[in-house]
Write a protein that binds this DNA or RNA. Structure first.
Length: 898
RNA sequence: GCGGGCGUGAUGGAAUGGUAGACAUAUCGGACUUAAAAUCCGAAGGCCUCAGCGCCGUGUGGGUUCGAGUCCCACCGCCCGCACCA
């Protein structure tokens, strides 16, 4: 009998699938379609074990759907634009294009051995001119539809690298690469009008039933809807043009507790006042400086500057309030000005205490009446808006009402009395898409002295990035955007007047590339962005799978793009929400190994350092119930003939004695190169085969949770697959034998079909695999006849085929299965076979299990009750007393109440 | 601070309100073997007066129920997201 050898069978079946084009997606009306998509990878150069997990999950779904009679679309591509390619070019010469395409080649060659059922004929990279040219066409259509516009915006500018930085790239106020102090600079940038769709993007979340609640919540928070009152304070003796200060508040019910007005250092009034006030100018400058990171803001002290200016309270013109410039007020939110109500806002209270401003309560707790004034050092009284409170200084609505009711009443009152109006605000800003980078999709517009900003003509698309067509290589050796320095690329005729003009050199944010690739996969070679019939057929994505880290930006942008593409006629109406179901998978983690080293540094000081080691360089063993580890190299060197744990132990102690070279084990964490706690999928496949890797990453943890990669787990998975092969081969080669205990095995089989199917359909892959282990054990021990065993083994191959497709094909062929297991119809569980004729019922007395009875499954309740009461366990527990009540749950349990 | 989630053996984890710990890892014992690996068989939540017809047990305390890991309330702990958001 041959042995299970993945290195032989895996390439063989991959070639067979390729030959039969098993996974080619073809449109046809005779079958329902199913579109399964995993978030496409960035071509960093190597695939990661996390990719293996992600794509295996998608592949399980894809293969299962194929077996259940669907036309399956399961494509793969690369999110190929972005900074790393440019950084690589800057660091080590070469060109981002060469770097990227070479990485893509490598990664494809690493992915193919995993045997994913992908339609590779649809593959593209977002840096293909065929792709980004269509993206430019979309941009032009969006422009025409008013979905893109240009405006001045404040950006983080790195003066050394000469580029705009995203907020995430600013660390402690310095550029993440250059370390230079980041400047605020106003630039003209392109923006997508995503904020126009705030309300719709928020409301539509409700319809996404198959999205994780967590993701929907994160998106809702990001969009950040709030209802409040916008009104103005009139100023006293203010500079011209500043006779009013517009403020926005979500708590207009606390208006009678106002004690100051605060404005942002960037507020026009603050900027005006600082001209004649050097102290204020200094204060404002100080506020503008400093980190813009959340952490820095969190720690920053709340500081204010009394402008000396005063305003009148809208309800009482005799009531004057001071105006402060305060460092915690953001110009970007609301109107850049607030009124402070210290009694009911902690931040305002801190501020009021610091500058000795009055604290006036407007409402009190309904329970302990009276005292709501924050005691010295006590917190502000901020109950949930849903709580009913007693208004002490109310002006609208009942005396006793909830915060929400009071807010509504206050807005109503103010509108009727001409003090402002109710407004709904969103936190969501327009999406700035301009980047001063080379390796991105060029924005297809031209700047003409005569005509201004002119869109390119569609027939001139793609506006391709220059490579070295005219003999001029792109120069990445100096900072800044190479497109700006290119001698000829910028020059072009104006699409409108034909006079010499210059191209826009900004490129698009890479999030644009990933905001519509799912639609492009439905017609990847079309000469328009999409092909309507194909989009109509294949869209939406039925199941989208990816990391939670994309919960906000990528998914929100994609939802915006789908709507914008519908408006511009590139997607049908039904695609406005492009992802029907979303699944966010967990990471693959690994424990970490390090040794401590003491190094003499100078004469007297000793510096300790940690050195991390790769898992393959470490031998982990167990001693006295404790897991310990030594370096592989030490084992080889000094004890080539280690025969026992004790000897290894001795080695351990020796090492410890020497210089603490023993390996410490640190608990599992996300794999990272710096911690060396990585396993390389390529090495794993070479060692165990793709099926083992696939089986393992699905087996031990629920898919949404992190899974810890362990060497023992991987070996166990490999052993199990070897066992399955062996059992199947034995069944295949067994002599014909009469029927034996067939029914027991077939019952197990149908239960396995049922449970595995349920697991696959509900992302319970770990549960499916546990069931497959149990079914394998049952088959192994079965005394059934050869026909039944053969049938069970074939079913096992089918049930395993989404997870371990190569092994399954091999077994299927071995057992004489017809065609490919990939194309075989998914087995269906027979309900009749899952119900036992007799059932064993546990008998409880007062909820504690005391005995059990085995009865025919349809025995009537009275009969069951009689038998239950007659059992020894029940008699003993009742001790002669009569039961108060007996509950019989047919087929489940009997509970006697004593 | 706000919002969400999770607490089950040594470990990863199973359990439509119905026999808690499936399945796997690690561990221990046995068979086979010169030996090891591989393979096969078996044990195993804790406690006790240690195989019984016993007690306890799903973070802690309460509640609902004939019956709670599961539902409700409070607390403790951990994880994640958001946040000078007016």
């Amino acid at each position: 009998m041959s042995r299970y050898d993945p290195s032989v069978i895996e390439p063989k079946w991959q070639a067979t699938w390729e030959e039969h084009q098993t996974f080619r997606a073809v449109r046809s009306d005779d079958k329902p379609k199913y579109y399964v998509l995993e978030m496409f990878p960035y071509p960093s150069g190597r695939i990661h074990i996390g990719h293996v997990r992600n794509y295996t999950m998608g592949d399980v779904i894809a293969r299962y759907k194929l077996a259940t009679g669907h036309n399956v679309l399961h494509p793969m591509g690369f999110d190929a634009f972005g900074m790393p390619a440019e950084n690589a070019a800057m660091a080590s010469g070469g060109h981002p294009k060469d770097w990227t395409y070479s990485n893509i080649d490598t990664m494809v060659s690493q992915m193919k051995p995993l045997g994913f059922g992908l339609d590779w004929s649809r593959m593209f990279a977002t840096c293909d001119p065929e792709y980004y040219g269509q993206q430019q066409a979309l941009f032009l259509d969006f422009l025409e539809a008013g979905l893109v516009y240009r405006k001045n915006a404040v950006v983080n500018w790195d003066p050394v690298d000469m580029t705009v930085l995203a907020n995430e790239q600013v660390i402690d106020g310095k550029g993440w690469r250059s370390g230079a102090e980041v400047e605020r600079r106003e630039l003209t940038q392109w923006f997508f009008k995503i904020s126009d769709m705030s309300e719709e993007l928020l409301d539509a979340l409700d319809g996404l039933d198959d999205w994780p609640a967590k993701v929907k919540l994160m998106q809702a928070n990001w969009i950040g809807k709030s209802r409040g009152l916008q009104f103005a304070f009139s100023t006293i003796d203010a500079p011209e043009g500043h006779d009013r200060i517009e403020v926005y508040t979500t708590r207009p019910d606390t208006l009678m507790g106002a004690s100051f007005v605060g404005i942002s250092p960037d507020h026009p009034l603050a900027k005006h006042l600082e001209k004649d006030n050097p102290d204020l100018a200094a204060f404002n400058a100080e506020c503008r400086k400093g980190g813009t990171t959340e952490e820095a803001l969190e720690k920053a002290e709340k500081r204010g500057f009394d402008t000396g200016l005063r305003v009148r309270h809208p309800f009482d013109t005799a009531w004057e309030l001071p105006v402060y410039v305060a460092n915690f007020i953001l110009m970007e939110y609301g109107t850049g000005a607030i009124f402070g109500c210290p009694a009911h806002d902690q931040r305002d209270l801190d501020f009021a205490r610091k500058y000795d401003l009055p604290v006036v309560s407007t409402f009190a707790s309904a329970e302990d009446e009276g005292h709501t004034l924050p005691e010295d050092g006590g917190p502000a009284y901020v109950p949930p808006k849903t709580e009913t409170v007693v208004y002490l200084r109310g002006f609208a609505g009942e005396t006793e009402q909830t915060g929400t009711e009071a807010i509504d009443a206050a807005i109503d009152f103010c509108e009727k009395n001409g003090v402002g109006h109710g407004v709904t605000k969103f936190r969501l800003r327009d999406w700035g898409l301009s980047r001063q980078r080379y390796w991105g999709c060029p924005i297809p517009v031209v700047h003409c002295d005569a005509c201004g900003v002119v869109p390119e003509k569609k027939e001139n698309l793609p506006i391709a990035l220059p490579y070295d067509e005219d003999g001029t290589a792109i120069d990445f050796s100096v900072p800044g955007n190479p497109l700006d320095r290119h001698p000829s690329w910028r020059s072009c005729p104006c699409p409108s007047c034909g006079q010499p003009a210059t191209r826009e050199t900004d490129t698009m944010d890479t999030f644009v590339d990933s905001s519509w690739y799912f639609a492009r996969f439905t017609a990847p070679r079309a000469d328009t962005p999409t092909h309507m019939a194909d989009a109509q057929y294949w869209m939406n994505v039925d199941q989208y799978i990816g990391g939670i880290e994309h919960a906000i930006l990528h998914l929100l942008y994609s939802r915006f793009f789908a709507r914008a593409m519908h408006i511009t006629g590139h997607l049908p109406e039904k695609c406005k929400e492009p992802f029907n179901a979303l699944f966010t998978q967990g990471m693959v983690t690994h424990e970490m190994y390090y040794t401590g080293h003491a190094v003499q540094d100078g004469e007297n000081s000793i510096v300790a350092s940690l050195v991390y080691h790769f898992p393959e360089d470490v031998v982990v063993f167990s001693s006295g119930g404790e897991r310990k580890a030594v370096l592989q190299s030490r084992v080889d060197e000094t004890v080539t003939d280690v025969a026992s744990v004790e000897e290894l132990e001795a080695l351990w102690k020796l090492d410890e004695w020497h210089n603490a070279r023993h390996v410490r084990i640190q608990s599992s964490a996300k794999m990272s190169k710096s911690k060396k706690n990585v396993v390389d999928p390529v090495a794993i496949i070479q060692q165990y085969g793709a099926d083992t890797a696939r089986w393992f990453v699905l087996s031990d943890s629920p898919p949404e949770r992190d899974v810890e990669w362990t060497a023992s787990g991987a070996e166990a998975a490999a052993r199990h697959l070897g066992r399955v092969y062996r059992i199947a081969a034995e069944v295949a080669e067994a002599e014909e034998s009469p029927t034996g205990d067939d029914e027991a095995l077939l019952r197990e089989m149908h239960k396995a079909i049922h449970d595995v199917t349920l697991g696959v359909e509900s992302f319970g892959f770990n549960a499916s695999i546990a069931r497959l282990y149990a079914f394998t054990n049952a088959l192994s021990k079965s005394k059934a006849g050869s026909d039944a065993k053969r049938q069970a083994a074939k079913t096992l191959a089918q049930l395993m085929s989404p997870m371990t497709p190569h092994l399954s094909e091999e077994i299927w062929a071995l057992l004489g299965g017809e065609g490919l297991v990939a194309n075989a119809p998914w087995p269906v569980a027979d309900p009749a076979m899952m119900v036992e004729d007799t059932v064993t019922l546990p008998i409880q007395v007062n909820g504690k299990r005391r005995d059990e009875i085995t009865v025919p499954k349809d025995m009537d309740k009275a009969e069951v009750e009689k038998l239950a009461l007659a059992t020894d366990g029940v008699k003993r527990a009742l001790d002669g007393a009569a039961p108060k009540k007996v509950i019989v749950v047919p087929g489940r349990i009997v509970n006697v109440v004593a």
